[in-house]
């Protein structure tokens, strides 16, 4: 099946401060009690929002339409729950920009067509401050040009080449690729000692 090519994402940004934000915070486990991903967006950062009240960026109206999430380092660490990027994506976020991401979170996001792009620590601070000072400023993450621009800033971003390539070619949904040339898979399986035994 053909999937969408993702070359750039444009929209306002939602700034979220903090290193090591784990997936239990992004979507607490009690909301995983379901056989589907539907409605997860309503519980995105539920406990953080409750604790921070109206001050939490996700509760503020000026960020309601944001399409890009600005974060800091090691975002999405912890549990492998795909519910985390699912909730983010379903909330309308179409790209995440931060210093670094946990690998499982990053991979899960790729599979949903949600690019995660890295910037330096200093640039991440500047971007977050810009989105806080002028909510609604429009940013554009350009995967082709590997840069993020907006609010008078232009910063380089890095996306691992494999992932970037998948977005640009529209092959980020990997299953079809894995099913190509299936005889090669069967040949590998047949050679494995534990399968032969």
């Amino acid at each position: 099946m053909s999937i969408e090519r993702i070359t750039s994402i444009r929209g306002s940004a939602l700034p979220l401060r903090g290193d090591n934000i784990d997936t239990d915070r992004i979507i607490p486990a009690r909301f995983l009690r379901s056989v589907s991903f539907e409605g997860l967006e309503d519980h995105l950062f539920e406990d953080d929002r409750q604790q921070a009240g109206a001050a939490h960026p996700l509760s503020r109206r000026e960020y309601a339409a944001a399409a890009i999430l600005f974060v800091e380092s090691n975002f999405g660490c912890g549990s492998s729950r795909e519910h985390a990027p699912q909730a983010i994506r379903r909330r309308g976020i179409r790209a995440v920009v931060g210093v670094s991401f946990s690998e499982i979170f990053f991979g899960n996001s790729v599979a949903l067509g949600l690019p995660c792009a890295s910037v330096s620590t200093d640039e991440s601070r500047v971007l977050i401050a810009a989105a806080e000072q002028a909510p609604g400023s429009v940013f554009e993450l350009d995967l082709e040009a590997r840069q993020l621009s907006g609010a008078g800033l232009t910063v380089p971003v890095t996306v691992p080449p494999g992932a970037r390539d998948s977005f640009l070619r529209g092959t980020w949904d990997a299953t079809a690729l894995l099913l190509d040339h299936y005889e090669e898979v069967e040949a590998v399986a047949a050679r494995l000692p534990y399968i032969r035994a």
Binding site: S80, E82, A111, T175, L178
Partner: peptide, 14 residues
């Protein structure tokens, strides 16, 4: 450890 989309990948393609 993998996410749900990869669980789908593994089911479909191992």
């Amino acid at each position: 450890g993998i996410g749900t989309s990869q669980v789908r990948d593994v089911l479909a393609s191992q």
